[in-house]
Design a protein around this nucleic acid. Structure first.
Ligand SMILES: [Mn+2]
Ligand SMILES: [Mn+2]
Ligand SMILES: [Mn+2]
Ligand SMILES: [Mn+2]
Lengths: 218, 218
DNA sequence: AAATAAATTTAGGCAAAGCTAAAAATAAAT
DNA sequence: ATTTATTTTTAGCTTTGCCTAAATTTATTT
């Protein structure tokens, strides 16, 4: 049985491992979890002892297959609860993350599987992130950053890289949501600002925005 | 902000206080919470310090109005989650208590009020216990034990005193549920067994059963 | 190749919440 | 009214998860 804290470490290591070749550093974990490197070292030893991660002093850590599965189950819970909050309780997509941070630690396999069924087995959370199924499988979504999309090619907004409340509220304000049709009209060389078309109207946004929106071309 | 443990103590003191004139003893709390008396004394001091209970050495404790409200909000969460699990996720009424023990500690007023609305502002949980509203008010249900019901007087089953899984499963087996019509036909003097009528069929049950069923006469 | 900087680990402590064993206060029985 | 039993509190120790400060290892410069 994992503690609340152990679960958070596993989840964090999982997220930091995405598209990462080498082990995850102590400092990276400390920064993400907002704790001190020495605390991370302590916890790392415990997780290593429990065979949830592979760890060699000074070399960073990677999840074992057991640790990976545990992490995926936490992510599964987090994202399913987010779907519940948005779809059933009418939360806005920028309000759900913190509550899901708590709900993800509720320990009942039966609960999460029944919740999954109740929600209709969703494959993505409200921010476009994939939801692992009960076996840990998640369909990898073919996505690219808007900033990598060629000019004048239309695409569909399917996710956000940064899912902070600030960014999500900005998107609401600009009427950008998952499913919006997006096209880059031109890039201003002087300040790297982007003139983009959302559905049927045009706005100008900064580079930071296009670097945090995922799109897919159909 | 209350810790998980502080919340459990407040809730326990609340439950032990029901229909109780004097303060709640250290041992009573220890027994209910399954811990040692010395641990209870430690926690009691903390809760007293935070002005959530009134405490004088060796005299037992009572909730302050602030502590009472905090306790009611935990009970509210517990019971609303139980309704959710039964009504929306199709849990059986004997399976929900332990999960609700965890869910009751999720800290978001917005969440619980939205859940309340989603469920249609229920006033009772799946075991017939009243659910406090967002102000802490709960309608007191006019109930009596089946054992106190006069012979040959029909009543409706509206709650259980013991809500252990064992008892609830027994009731399922005997097809007794909330809303069932109940009548005591006769009491066998020899072994104190009860011949009772549930809706339209008759069964014999022990004294222990009739001592744990709440009914109301209309 | 040293010297310096950065990252990581160790050592030593702290607070929360539990425990056991002993002391003190209250209640019950003679 | 003592004595005995029960309840409650205190004292001291443990584990988890965190911290600061110091030591050590690895990485980067000169
Ligand atoms: Mn989230
Ligand atoms: Mn978390
Ligand atoms: Mn319950
Ligand atoms: Mn609880």
């Amino acid at each position: 049985m994992l503690t609340y804290s152990e679960e958070n470490y596993l989840k964090t290591i999982f997220h930091l491992s995405q598209g990462q070749k080498h082990g995850i550093s102590t400092n990276a974990i400390a920064a993400k979890i907002e704790t001190k490197a020495s605390s991370v070292t302590d916890m790392i030893k415990k997780l290593n002892e429990k065979k949830l991660i592979k760890y060699q002093k000074y070399q960073g850590v990677t999840l074992t297959s057991e640790g990976l599965m545990a992490a995926k189950m936490i992510v599964r819970k987090h994202r399913l609860w987010e779907v519940f909050l948005v779809e059933k309780l009418n939360f806005n997509w920028d309000e759900v993350h913190d509550v899901a941070e708590e709900l993800e630690h509720i320990k009942s396999e039966k609960l999460i599987n029944k919740l999954d069924a109740f929600l209709g087995y969703p494959t993505e959370d409200p921010h476009g992130d994939p939801i692992p199924d009960s076996k840990g499988d998640m369909k990898m979504i073919n996505k690219q950053l808007l900033s990598e999309l060629p000019i004048k090619k239309t695409a569909i907004c399917i996710g956000v890289k940064d899912s902070s409340s600030d960014f999500l509220q900005y998107l609401d304000k600009q009427k950008i949501s998952l499913g919006s049709k997006i096209e880059i009209l031109e890039i201003e060389p002087f300040d790297q600002s982007y003139r983009i078309k959302i559905n049927d109207y045009e706005i100008t946004v900064t580079k930071k925005i296009v670097n945090n929106l995922f799109v897919k071309t159909n």
